[in-house]
Design a protein around this nucleic acid. Structure first.
Lengths: 198, 198, 198, 198
DNA sequence: AATTAATCGAGACGGTACGTCCGGTCTTGCA
DNA sequence: TGCAAGACCGGACGTACCGTCTCGATTAATT
């Protein structure tokens, strides 16, 4: 018997996602329990299991809710014509998110889950990463058309070359993640992209 | 109170690390239990808890043991004079490791743990990442001295700009991790590093 | 926090007590484990710990259940007017119980626990010993009124003087416990009680 | 390889028995552990296992040591000619022992073990109970010869009829064990023994 | 007095059970 | 019918002891 979404309690849904977000930040993802979420949300455990298949799914929804993540195609990037400046803006926003404790704890949790759960990995890719990646890709294409990126540059690789180092430093804590670092990465890549076919 | 390392059973130590590695690959990190490790290793649970503070620490040691990770300063990179070729070699080795199932499952487990345990994060940084990062940094400096990298390039940033995208694609499974991808990333960066101060 | 008795599973309760009784007979009290009881009863360990504070308490309840021990005041003894014959009946019933393996193993377990746990001792006194002791005491009083026991006999002492030797031989295995032994004890005491104030 | 008693460390033997006695009184028999005895005695665990087959055996020895229990035939009872007075003396000594905390805790432990271990039961019977029981039996026979006990009384039963009630009250804590109670039991039995064949 | 061999204190080892916690399911009233 | 509450079975947790098994370091009897 699949539950009837029409009868779903919105109040409970909100409370559960909020509780999950609070708790993951307070105790860390490893010590996060469904029972604690239920208790904090003032909700029966069954109400969680009725609507989410796993703890990971709850965190995933909580993360999406918190960031009001737009669907693919809905992400809008600035296009001032100055490609470098536009990218700098995007990267600074990313750095700011990663340095926000609530975002960071939930996102770390997500990255944890994704390692063991390929289905979730796909969802995360589709609903979290892809929208931004594609929007940035689109902006890259515009830049390429405008001659700000050389024709031979593989833009799919370029996008990951841009975000990978940010992600790397954040996840592995090799050093504090700053806008300065993001700018430096962008700088090195930009020169390469421009120089690609001189 | 604290156990006496002189009396430690080497046979048990080896068996535990091997069992941990096997199991993390077979069942995944989320379903890995200390009891299963002990059973597989033919060892009492207490023998694990006596020598490791947590499941994470066991995996960490197992990972180090498996990869015979050298200490910082001990990593030796090829220096043929051809910087690009040397880097290609290093990246291909990295890609191969990431595509080795045993390495991959253990390394994913490590990346999972590191998210919740700052102390482990530091150890991982120091014993796993730093040695390679610094050796590569050293090779970068030689290349800079040889004029293959422009003077203005921040080499600390450059190293992470190189490995970040590899790590990103592997961890998030945005697409299969191939040597071709690694080469493309290297290509884009190389041009930037050369072009830096034209 | 404290469990709600209204929701208690009667099926589990019965299964646990039955399993405890079986196991104490099969393996002895020293080797009886809560895990084995839970496994035999097809029950989670927590269900045992939820309702009983200790293994001893389970055995206690199992014992009561098995013997459908009546509450104080509910034990009814025969009163045919022939005091000696009535007592013989009671003692023979006691001897039969002590020679029943299931009763014996559980009762030995109880006697073991009682040595270390004063609270359980009190419960055993109140729920197991007192009911019979008092009923017998009542019968003694009737006999005293009827002139079958001399007036000066301290009946509280008399009751223990009657059961003590049965218990002693059973517990310490000085010799097999038979009805003949019980009769002989009764005989010696009866003469004393009658002769008390000649 | 059975150990060579000639090389046995007397110092350790004494320390172990003393520690066992102290601990059984302090923490109760249920919580008494071999490790604790070894630690308290400043002795390796193996030294205990080398010389005693079980915790029960240690307590048994400790008990014997503490009470310098005489071998069978060595117990000497007073024989003043006044049978009642002599018995009163014996019973009072027994009551005093039972009310001595160190004796009591060890003896309770013994009675606990005996329930599950028939071999120990036999040893306890032979080395602890029999000596006294037989000495008392001997005194009974003298009394019977002197006409203080009627000819028809079964003396084996009589002895247990005397000690059983003491033991019963002490073990089951139906009421405080006093010399008055012992005297009352003796009184009731004495009259019966005298009246047996009038 | 030197040698030898067993016992000793110490404590790591493979195990078993402990009592607790939590996962995911099921049941019972309340709304 | 969905809900809060929470009991249920199962299973892993990390700990405590069991009884066995090395380790040197005494220690006592034998050379």
């Amino acid at each position: 018997m699949t539950p009837n979404p029409a009868r779903r309690s919105e109040r409970s849904r909100i409370a559960i996602l909020a509780a999950a977000l609070e708790l993951v930040r307070e105790v860390g993802y490893g010590k996060l329990t469904v029972e604690a979420i239920a208790a904090r949300a003032g909700v029966g455990k069954q109400t969680i299991y009725r609507w989410w298949p796993s703890k990971a799914a709850v965190i995933f929804d909580a993360f999406l809710q918190h960031n009001q993540t737009p669907a693919a195609g809905e992400v809008v990037l600035p296009d001032t014509g100055d490609f470098a400046a536009d990218m700098r803006l995007v990267l600074h926003a990313t750095v700011a998110e990663f340095n926000d404790p609530t975002f960071a704890s939930a996102y770390r949790a997500l990255n944890t889950d994704v390692q063991d759960d390929p289905e979730l990995a796909e969802q995360m890719l589709a609903r979290v990463l892809k929208p931004t990646l594609e929007a940035v890709g689109e902006r890259f294409r515009a830049a390429q058309r405008a001659g700000q990126i050389a024709g031979g540059v593989d833009l799919e690789v370029a996008v990951e070359a841009l975000f990978g180092p940010i992600y790397y430093r954040w996840l592995l804590r090799t050093a504090p993640l700053t806008t300065g670092y993001a700018d430096a990465v962008l700088e090195q890549l930009l020169r390469g992209w421009q120089a690609y076919r001189p």
